[in-house]
Deep mutational scan, measured.
Amino acid sequence: QEEEKEIKRLAKKFNASEEEARRAWKKAGGDPETAEKILKKKG
């Protein structure tokens, strides 16, 4: 599933848990760029 792959990639890229990545993904409405910004800010 595309979403799961994206979440795993985000978690790995930002050294975050999949739970954090999933939360960022949901907050971003499934937009990878926005999710990255959220995780970057958090990191």
Rank of each mutant, 00 (worst) to 15 (best):
K8R: 12
T34N: 09
K27C: 12
G30T: 02
D31G: 02
N15M: 08
R22Y: 08
A28F: 00
A28H: 01
A28V: 02
K5A: 13
E3N: 10
R22C: 05
E19T: 06
R23F: 09
A24W: 02
A24I: 05
E33L: 11
L39W: 00
E19C: 09
A28M: 00
A11F: 01
E2H: 11
E2N: 12
N15E: 07
R22F: 08
G29C: 03
K37R: 10
E33F: 11
E20N: 04
E20W: 05
K13E: 08
K8L: 14
K12C: 11
N15K: 09
P32A: 13
A21Q: 00
K37E: 14
Q1L: 14
K13F: 04
R23A: 15
I38D: 03
K13S: 05
R23C: 08
A28Y: 01
E18P: 08
K8C: 05
I7A: 02
K8N: 09
A16W: 03
A24V: 06
K40T: 13
P32M: 14
A24Q: 01
E3G: 08
T34S: 10
K5N: 12
G29R: 12
P32F: 11
E2C: 10
G30D: 02
D31W: 03
Q1D: 14
P32Y: 11
E19Y: 07
K41G: 15
K27E: 15
R9L: 08
T34Q: 13
A11Q: 05
D31T: 03
D31L: 04
A21V: 09
E33W: 12
R9F: 06
K26E: 14
R9S: 06
I38S: 03
K26F: 13
L39R: 01
K41L: 09
G43H: 15
E19F: 06
A11P: 00
E36M: 08
E4T: 07
K42P: 13
D31F: 04
E36W: 04
K5C: 11
L39K: 00
E2T: 10
K13H: 06
K5I: 13
K41N: 15
R23E: 15
K40E: 15
K41Q: 11
I38V: 04
I7F: 03
Q1A: 13
T34R: 13
F14L: 05
E6P: 03
E6G: 05
E2L: 11
K40S: 14
K5Y: 13
L10E: 00
K37L: 08
R22P: 00
E4Q: 10
A11R: 05
A16N: 03
E33P: 06
E18A: 05
G29N: 12
A24K: 00
L10M: 06
E3L: 09
A16I: 13
N15R: 10
E19I: 06
L10G: 00
K42L: 15
D31Y: 03
R22T: 07
G30L: 02
A24S: 03
K27Q: 15
E6F: 12
K5M: 14
E33I: 13
F14G: 02
E20Y: 04
K42E: 15
E4A: 09
F14V: 04
G29T: 03
S17W: 02
A24R: 00
N15S: 08
A21S: 04
A16R: 06
D31S: 06
S17L: 04
L10H: 01
S17V: 02
E33S: 13
A21P: 00
R22Q: 06
E4W: 11
L10S: 01
Q1N: 13
K13N: 04
D31H: 11
E6W: 14
E36K: 04
K41A: 10
W25M: 07
E4L: 08
Q1V: 13
E4N: 07
E4I: 10
A35I: 07
E33N: 10
A11D: 00
I7E: 01
A21W: 02
K27H: 12
E19D: 07
A28Q: 00
W25H: 03
P32L: 15
A11H: 02
K12N: 10
R9G: 04
L39T: 01
I38P: 00
K13V: 07
E36Q: 04
K40L: 15
R22L: 09
W25S: 02
W25Y: 09
G29K: 12
G30Q: 05
K12R: 11
A35T: 06
G29V: 05
K42C: 07
A21C: 07
A16D: 02
D31P: 01
A11N: 01
A24F: 01
R22D: 03
K42D: 15
K26S: 10
I38R: 02
D31R: 06
